[in-house]
């Protein structure tokens, strides 16, 4: 075996663990599911380490793997790593603090859940993981232009769904300083 691979994997694991666990916890309803997604994502990354890009792109690549694992997981088709009680407990800690849930946010969250899966993922990668278009393109194996178009459409659909649900996102209700450009 190539001696360099374990060290490289360990470095990527340690560097990206916080981001991948956050990714899973933001999207999974239970800590057990999140633990499964994290474990399987890294297990696949190890099995496919020869395909894993170097440097910063490794994390983006892991997001892409995690995205596929999550899709499979939702259909109950995931190969599971052996469960670890410790990992479950650590993931459960992330679920202890419920996000601030004002009425408006609850309504937004509800509308968000009605969006197509691909829309939610794109919007989340921007808002939650803070990825830019190029990074999303790398993570999902798309062109930057495709990301731009899809993101534009996803924003449009979310906006329309909010309007239809009677959720008004106005400057008064925004949770950001008013001077922020629209």
């Amino acid at each position: 075996m190539d001696d360099e691979r374990p060290a490289r994997f360990e470095a990527v694991y340690k560097g990206a663990y916080g981001q991948i666990t956050a990714y899973a916890a933001r999207r999974c309803d239970s800590p057990q599911d999140a633990a499964d997604v994290v474990a399987e994502t890294f297990a696949i990354a190890w099995r496919r380490i020869d395909e894993m890009p170097r440097g910063q792109e490794a994390t983006l690549w892991l997001y892409g793997v995690a995205r596929n694992v999550l899709s499979n997981h939702r259909r109950g088709e995931v190969r599971r790593q052996a469960r670890s009680a410790e990992l479950d407990a650590e993931m459960a800690d992330l679920y202890g603090n419920s996000p601030d849930s004002g009425l408006e946010l609850a309504a937004i969250a509800q509308v968000f859940r009605t969006l197509p899966d691909d829309d939610r993922e794109l919007l989340s990668l921007v808002a939650w993981e803070g990825l830019d278009r190029q990074e999303i393109a790398t993570a999902l194996g798309l062109s930057r232009n495709a990301v731009r178009i899809r993101l534009h459409r996803a924003r449009g659909r979310f906006s329309r769904a909010l309007t239809e649900a009677g959720v008004c996102v106005t400057s008064e209700s925004r949770l950001v300083p008013a001077e922020r450009p629209l």
């Binding site: 663990y17 916080g18 650590e90 992330l94």
Partner: peptide, 23 residues
């Protein structure tokens, strides 16, 4: 990031920019 996405930042249980677990 649009207004909607700025609002969305308050949704997840792990806040944007924060790590989940510790390696």
């Amino acid at each position: 990031m649009t207004d909607i996405e700025i609002l969305m930042r308050s949704l997840p249980r792990v806040q944007p920019g924060r790590p989940g677990g510790r390696p």
